[in-house]
Design a protein around this nucleic acid. Structure first.
Lengths: 160, 160
DNA sequence: ATAAAGCGGATAAACAATATCCACTTTATA
DNA sequence: TATAAAGTGGATATTGTTTATCCGCTTTAT
């Protein structure tokens, strides 16, 4: 039970896209390079973000990706959902139903309610931060002098 | 990102062991049969529960497993921990460190704090229920007439 | 027209979870 | 005291999921 690395990668990809000026895009290849991710595979992840209406893709030469929503409207939770899908962390295997010889329709499990609550509570925390708040955090004191290089890289790689 | 089925299996195994009278044990084979689990593999899971001091194993003929702690002292969380290990749901891949060219020691990630909070909050819910509370729930109205067969099975399979 | 970008499907590689096998130790009992 | 039935630990196979690659396709600025 471990979160896919694709979630972290996607979040940082969105932080990168959030550094773009209006109308500009970054190519999938450029993004994966900056993230140190496999380019061909990361394209698949970018597609999931497109499907989830988090980013927009522009085909053709001078194409690429940019944010579709405002960064303050993209929660970490939305990214998680887009990348990992909507399946729950827990799903019963119907062991109790078998042990007690219940009807299939009962779909009863002593753990399901508890696990659903736990998951909700977990998700609630992921809804607290957004791409905007993470971007702001990155621009804080701590990385003051390291940000410039990244901003320059974005300027060089972006396409308008 | 999905919880192993071993967690559900282990919880129900413990509920079964909780039906045993004092000093009695159930063999690993009997338990796996009742759970519909692979016997040889489930032995490995039982071992994890032994290592975690949740159950005791008795070797030799007339051997088997029984609870080591009182059922009200075994939280669902403890079972999860025993089966899945103590690794976190999320661990950073150091993408930000690479992007900003930080020192390795910084081990900095915008997501780590958030994810740790989320996980704590998730775990807190798993600490709420115990084998005792789940056993009680199983004995409630809903399964009134289905419990007898299971109790009889336990009586037949147990060894004192 | 062409080159550079995204799209979608098929497939491979890597890894983790599940399952099996076997030689070993332990212990009740005939 | 030999034996049968139980757990133990290691090696290994099977299965499933995640990550990665490849290729032919569409889109669009020049």
């Amino acid at each position: 039970m471990h979160m896919k690395t694709g979630v972290e990668q996607s979040v940082y990809a969105l932080v990168l896209l959030n550094m773009l000026p209006d109308k500009a895009v970054l190519s999938g290849e450029a993004i994966s390079q900056q993230l140190g991710a496999s380019a061909t595979y990361f394209q698949k992840l970018l597609r999931k973000l497109v499907t989830a209406d988090i980013i927009t893709s522009v085909p053709g030469i001078k194409g690429g990706f940019k944010l579709k929503k405002r960064p303050e409207d993209i929660r970490v939770y939305d990214v998680y959902l887009a990348v990992e899908g909507q399946q729950s962390l827990y799903s019963s295997n119907g062991i109790l139903v078998d042990m007690l010889d219940l009807e299939k329709e009962d779909s009863c499990c002593l753990l399901t309610n508890l696990m659903e609550e736990a998951e909700s509570s977990w998700k609630a925390v992921l809804k607290r931060e957004t791409i905007a708040s993470l971007s702001e955090e990155m621009r804080g004191e701590r990385f003051k002098d390291k940000i410039a290089a990244l901003e320059e890289w974005v300027s060089n790689k972006m396409v308008i």
